[in-house]
Design a protein around this nucleic acid. Structure first.
Lengths: 369, 369
DNA sequence: GCTTGTACTTGAAACGCATCAAAGGGGCCG
DNA sequence: CGGCCCCTTTGATGCGTTTCAAGTACAAGC
C-alpha cells in the first residue's frame, strides 16, 4: 500500500525526476518515445501525483472552490451547475462544500479553500459578508454570489428584491387583501424578498401583510405545519394569498391547505420562489419566481477568471443579473391560459438552461393562483 | 497581496516557527499567553495556513471527497447530506465534486481526490466500477455508493432491484396490462430498477412492458416529451401504467398527459422513483419509491472511518441498505387513504431525515395511482 | 574537424508546513 | 547550592512536487 511517487517512476523508467514531471505537465517537451515509456511506467506502477505537493511547488492549481449554504436548495444547485459548466469550459475543476446553514462551517470552508491554493473561491453567503471584511482582503480571488455587498469586492447577485416585488404585484393584481409570507427570513436573500414585498405593498396600505417564520430548515414539512395552522384560523383571519419564500415551503403549504379542505386557489392563492423544476411540472404546477441561478454561477466564474487573468488587485465590481420585473408584471396582470404560458416555458427553460442563455428573472404561472 | 506565511507570524510574534505550528495543531501544548499572542498575530496579519503544505508535511488531512454523477438529482443530494453530517460528526470535512454525467470527469475527480491526501473518497459511480479495477487498489480508502461491485472493495448500496420490484408489484396490484418505463437506463442504478421490474413481471407474461429512453439528462422536459408522445398514441397502444425512473421524469409525464386531456390516474397511472420531497407534497403528490439516500451517505462515511481506524488493508465489505419490499407491497395492495399514509409519511420523513434514523426503502403513495 | 544550434534531459533548489529530538527555563527537593 | 524533573519552546529535517539553469547528445553548416 506504499504510495508510489515520482522518484519511483523515474527510477523504474530509467529517467530523471524532472523528466517525469515534464511528462505530466509539459508533454510537448519530451521525445515521444520517452513520453510513452514514462506513461507506461506510470500506469504499470499506478502512480498518482500528489496534489498537495504539486500545488505547493507549482502555485495555484486550476480549480475553484464553491461554498454553498445548503445542497438541497434548488437554487443553490442551479448556481453550482452554472459555475461547474463555466469552470470546465476554462479547464478548471470545481469543488463544492456544503456549509449546512452554519456560519462557522461556512467560514471554515472558506478558509480551507483559501488555503488550498485554489485559483478562486465563490460563496453564496448566508449573511451579508460585510460583517466579515477580512475575507474580502484575501490573496485569493473571491466572488460573492446571490448577495449584495456594500463593501468593495466582487459579487454577482440576482435581484431578490425584485423577486419579492414581482410576487407582491402578482398578489395585488389578484386582488389580495391579506398576504402571509412563509419562511425564515434569517437568510439575506429571503430578507430581501420580504423587503421587496413590503416595498411593493407600501402603496397599498389596505393590504395586510404577515410574515411567519418556518423554522430553520424551510422544509416541506415546515410549510405543511404553517399551512395547517393557517387552515385552522377563522375565515376572517385567514389570508387570501400565501407566499412561500421557497418552492418547497409553498408546496408544503398547499398540501396542508388542500388536506384541511381549503380550496386552492379558490379560497387561498399560493405562490413560491425559486423556480424548482419539480414545482412547475406535475399536474398542478406551482406559481414561482425563478431567479437566474445558473447564470449567477456562470457569471461568478467569469468574474473569477477576470481577476485571474488581469491579475489586478480586486477592484469593486458588482454584477446584477436580470430583473425582468416589468415584463413579468405585465404578463401577470393578464389572465393567462396556463397551457400556453406554463408548458412552453417549462420546455424552453430546460433547453436554455442547457445552453445557458437565460439571463432574466423569469416567472412561471401555475394553477394555485 | 503577498501571502503571509507561518514564518512571518513567527517573526512578528517573536516566537519560533514550530511554536506557531503548535498553536495551530496542538494548542494544548502552549502556555495560554503564548497562544493568545500568536492568535492575535495571526488575525492581525490575516494569516491563512497553506493547506497544501500542511497536507504534504503532515500526511492526510481530515477530509473526505465525494464524487457525484449529478447535483440536481435529489437522491444524490440525500447521499451528500448523509455523508456530510456523518463526516462532520467525526470532525472531517467533506468536499464534493460534480462529475456531470461524464465518465472521464468522474475518473478525473476521483484521481484528483486520491492525490489530494484525502483521508478517504466516495463515489456514486455511473457505471459499474468493475471496469476500472485500478481504482480499487488505491492507497486511499474508497467506498462505492449506490452500486454493487462484484470485485473486492467496499460499497454500500440501496437495493435498486428491489425498488423496481416494488413498483412493478404496485402496477400488478393496480391491474396494469401495459407498462411503460421512462428513463435512460444507461445508469447502472436505473438499469437495476428496470431489471427488478422485469423480474417481477416474469411471473406475469400477460403484462406488456416497454422501456423508453428519455435522453441524456432525464429532465422534466424529457418526461414531458415522452408523455406527449404517449398521449398521442391510439388508445389501445397506450399504456395504463407509466413508471418514471426518476421523480422529475414522472412529473413531466404527468404534466403532458394532463395537458393532452388524458386523465391521471383515470386512464393512465404514473409512479416515480427517488423520493424527492417536492414530488410528494403539493396538492397532488406523486407516488414514488424512496431509496434511503441519506443512510447510504452515512454508512459510506462509516465504512471510510472503519478503514481509517483499523488501517487494515481493505477487505471485502458490502453493505446493502434497506429493502422493505415485502412490507411496502402489502401496503400497496390495499386501497390506502392518501391522507393517512402520505401526509404523516411526509412529516415523519422530514424529521427522521434530520435525525438520520431512516434505514429502509420507503414508499409514498400519491394520487396518480 | 570544429562551431553553432537544436532538442532533450538532468538535478538541485525552493514551496510552506508538521514533526520531533533536543535545548531551555523554572521550580522543587535534598 | 546542586541535581532532577517537568513544562515549554526551538529549529533542522523532510514531505513530493515544479521549475529552471545547466548539462548532454546529436545534427547541420562551414
Amino acid at each position: 500500500m506504499a504510495k508510489v511517487k515520482i522518484s519511483d517512476v523515474a527510477r523504474e523508467a530509467g529517467v530523471s525526476l524532472g523528466t517525469v514531471s515534464n511528462a505530466l505537465n509539459h508533454p510537448e517537451k519530451l521525445r515521444p518515445e520517452t513520453l510513452k515509456l514514462i506513461n507506461e511506467t506510470i500506469n504499470r506502477l499506478g502512480y498518482l501525483p500528489n496534489q498537495s505537493a504539486r500545488q505547493l511547488a507549482g502555485g495555484a492549481t486550476k480549480s475553484f472552490g464553491l461554498v454553498l449554504p445548503r445542497l438541497d436548495h434548488g437554487f443553490s444547485l442551479q448556481i453550482a451547475s452554472g459555475a461547474h459548466n463555466e469552470a470546465r469550459k476554462h479547464g478548471y475543476d470545481l469543488l463544492i462544500a456544503n456549509a449546512d446553514n452554519d456560519d462557522i462551517l461556512e467560514d471554515h470552508y472558506l478558509r480551507y479553500f483559501m488555503g488550498t491554493q485554489m485559483s478562486g473561491v465563490m460563496v453564496q453567503p448566508m449573511a451579508s459578508p460585510d460583517w466579515h471584511p477580512a475575507m474580502t482582503k484575501m490573496p485569493v480571488p473571491i466572488v460573492h454570489l446571490d448577495i449584495h455587498c456594500s463593501e468593495p469586492g466582487y459579487y454577482v447577485a440576482a435581484d431578490n428584491e425584485a423577486q419579492g416585488r414581482i410576487i407582491a404585484e402578482l398578489a395585488i393584481a389578484r386582488g389580495a387583501h391579506h398576504i402571509v409570507v412563509v419562511g425564515r427570513a434569517a437568510f439575506m436573500q429571503l430578507t430581501l424578498r420580504v423587503l421587496g414585498i413590503h416595498k411593493a405593498l407600501a402603496l397599498h396600505p389596505d393590504i395586510k401583510i404577515e410574515v411567519i417564520d418556518a423554522g430553520e430548515w424551510n422544509t416541506a414539512a415546515d410549510g405543511y405545519g404553517i399551512g395547517a395552522q393557517i387552515a385552522e384560523r377563522p375565515a376572517d383571519e385567514r389570508p387570501d394569498f400565501v407566499v412561500g419564500l421557497t418552492d418547497v415551503l409553498a408546496s408544503g403549504v398547499v398540501s396542508a391547505l388542500v388536506d384541511k379542505g381549503i380550496s386552492v386557489p379558490g379560497q387561498v392563492r399560493v405562490a413560491g420562489c425559486d423556480g424548482n423544476p419539480l414545482a412547475w411540472s406535475g399536474s398542478v404546477p406551482l406559481t414561482t419566481v425563478a431567479p437566474p441561478g445558473y447564470e449567477i454561477g456562470r457569471k461568478g466564474v467569469q468574474l473569477l477568471m477576470e481577476q485571474i487573468e488581469n491579475k489586478a488587485p480586486a477592484k469593486i465590481k458588482h454584477i446584477r443579473v436580470g430583473s425582468a420585473a416589468r415584463t413579468v408584471t405585465a404578463v401577470a396582470a393578464e389572465d393567462i391560459n396556463r397551457q400556453e404560458l406554463v408548458r412552453p416555458f417549462l420546455l424552453e427553460r430546460a433547453s436554455t438552461q442547457a445552453s445557458s442563455q437565460t439571463d432574466a428573472t423569469a416567472i412561471n404561472l401555475g394553477a394555485y393562483l
